[in-house]
Design a protein around this nucleic acid. Structure first.
Lengths: 214, 214
DNA sequence: CAGTCCGGAGAACGTTCGTTCTCCACTCCT
DNA sequence: AGGAGTGGAGAACGAACGTTCTCCGGACTG
C-alpha cells in the first residue's frame, strides 16, 4: 500500500543508493521546498548521476513520496522514543510537547514537512495529499491510543493532537519557539480537567486518575 | 505598512480593476495553489488583459501579496463579526470555533491560505513569509485581547489560538470537519479550568467565573 | 477628418525544470 | 585481449512560466 516508486531495483547496492538519494532529497526539500529544488541540485547534493537517479525512481514525484515515507518513519520513531522515556502515563501524554520544543529549536526548523508538502503540492499531486492525510491520521490515532492507554478518552487524544498541530504551524510561521510549552500547559489543563471528571469512554485506564492533579 | 504593489495607479477605474484582479486571483490561487495558476489563467478568469494586469501590478508576487492582504481583511472581518454576534464573554471566546466549523464545511475549503502560502512560497519569497507571520501574529494578538477582555489570561488566548490553528490544519489535510467542534470542546475545558483557578494576569474579569461549568 | 493614445489578443523571449539522450571512459567476463 | 554492459558528465528537448513586445482596431481631441 505505502510502497511507491520501487520499480526497477536490481540489487542491494541500489537500496543503498536509494537511501542516499532519499536522505539528500529530504534535506534539500525540507530546507528549500519541493519545487525549489530541481533534479540537478539533487544530483549534485547526493553525488549521484541523473541517469542513476532515474533508474532508482521513475519520477521526481516518486522521490517526494519516498521522502515523505522516510520523514514519517523518523517522526514516528522519535515521537515514540520520547514517549517511551516518559515515566508516568500522564507524562507519556505530555512527552510530545517536549519533543516539539526540542525540534522547534533546531536551527533548520521549518515546520512540519507534511503540512508544507500539502500546501505546496496537494493540488497537483493527489498522492502527496494522500500521504499527508495518512500521516496526520496516523498521528491522531497514536495520540488517541496514548490517551486511552492512560485512562482518558480518545477525544482527549484528539485535543492534544490539535494542540500539537497548532504549535507546529504557529512555531514554523511566526518563529515563536514557546508555542510548544504553551501547548503543553494547555494539555496539562485538559488532562487535569478530565481527571476530575472522567468521561464515559475513559473508564478503566492504566493509571488511577485523580491522584496528582495539583 | 501593509500597502503593497500599488505603484503606477492612475485613476479610480484602476482601483476597480485592481479589485477584480485580486478577487479572481484569490479564487484561483486558493483553489489550485499559487504556482499552479499562471498569469494566463488569471487573465482569462479575470477578463483583464495581461498588459493591464502588469500596469496594475509590477509582478506576480505583488499580486500574491495583495491577495494575502485581501484574505486577511476578509478573515478579520468575518471573525470579528462572528465574535460580535456572541452574547457572553465566554461565548465570544468560543465563537471562533463555530466560525471555523462553518468554514470547514464550505465546498471549496482547502485550509488556511496563509499556511498554504507559507508552505508553497516562504522559501522563495521572504515577503510572503512575512505576510503569513504577520497574519498569524495578528490572530494571536486578537485572541489574547479577547481572553483578557473576558477576564482570562493572555496565555489562555494563546492556547485557544493553538487549538484553532490545529483545527484548520487538520481539517484541511484530513478533511475531517469535526475538528472545529473538538477544538471548541477543548477550549471550553480550558475556560472552565481557568475560571476555577484564576491566574495572576486574569484578575478582574467581566463575567463571574465558576457559574456554569457543569 | 487626421492623428494620437489606449488597450486587447496573443506572439515572443528568456529562463527554469523534468526527463531523455549522447558520448565516452571504465569494468568485468570469457 | 576484446566486447558487451554500466555509469558519469552534461547536452538536448519539450513544456511551462513570468514578463515584455508587436500588431492592430477603436476612441477621443484638434
Amino acid at each position: 500500500m505505502t510502497r511507491q516508486g520501487d520499480a526497477g531495483l536490481r540489487d542491494s547496492g541500489d537500496l543503498r543508493l536509494r537511501r542516499a538519494v532519499i536522505e539528500s532529497a529530504d534535506a534539500l526539500y525540507y530546507a528549500h521546498g519541493f519545487r525549489a529544488v530541481g533534479m540537478d541540485a539533487l544530483r549534485q547534493h547526493a553525488g549521484v548521476s541523473l541517469k542513476l537517479i532515474y533508474r532508482l525512481f521513475p519520477s521526481k514525484e516518486s522521490i517526494v513520496l519516498a521522502v515523505l515515507d522516510y520523514r514519517h518513519q523518523i517522526w514516528a520513531g522519535e515521537v515514540t522514543a520520547a514517549v517511551e522515556r516518559a515515566e508516568s502515563p500522564r507524562e507519556r501524554l505530555l512527552a510530545i510537547y517536549d519533543y516539539l520544543a526540542g525540534w522547534f529549536r533546531a536551527e533548520n526548523f521549518r515546520g512540519c514537512v507534511f503540512i508544507n508538502a500539502f500546501g505546496e503540492l496537494a493540488t497537483e499531486s493527489p498522492a502527496v495529499a494522500a500521504k499527508a492525510a495518512e500521516h496526520k491520521r496516523d498521528f491522531r490515532n497514536y495520540m488517541d491510543q496514548l490517551a486511552i492507554d492512560a485512562g482518558f478518552s480518545a477525544e482527549l487524544g484528539d485535543q492534544l493532537m490539535l494542540l500539537a498541530e497548532g504549535a507546529q504551524v504557529t512555531a514554523a510561521i511566526t518563529g515563536d519557539v514557546s508555542m510548544a510549552m504553551k501547548a503543553r500547559r494547555a494539555a496539562e489543563m485538559l488532562l487535569s480537567f478530565e481527571e476530575t471528571r472522567p468521561t464515559a469512554s475513559s473508564a478503566g485506564g492504566v493509571g488511577a486518575p485523580g491522584s496528582h492533579g495539583g
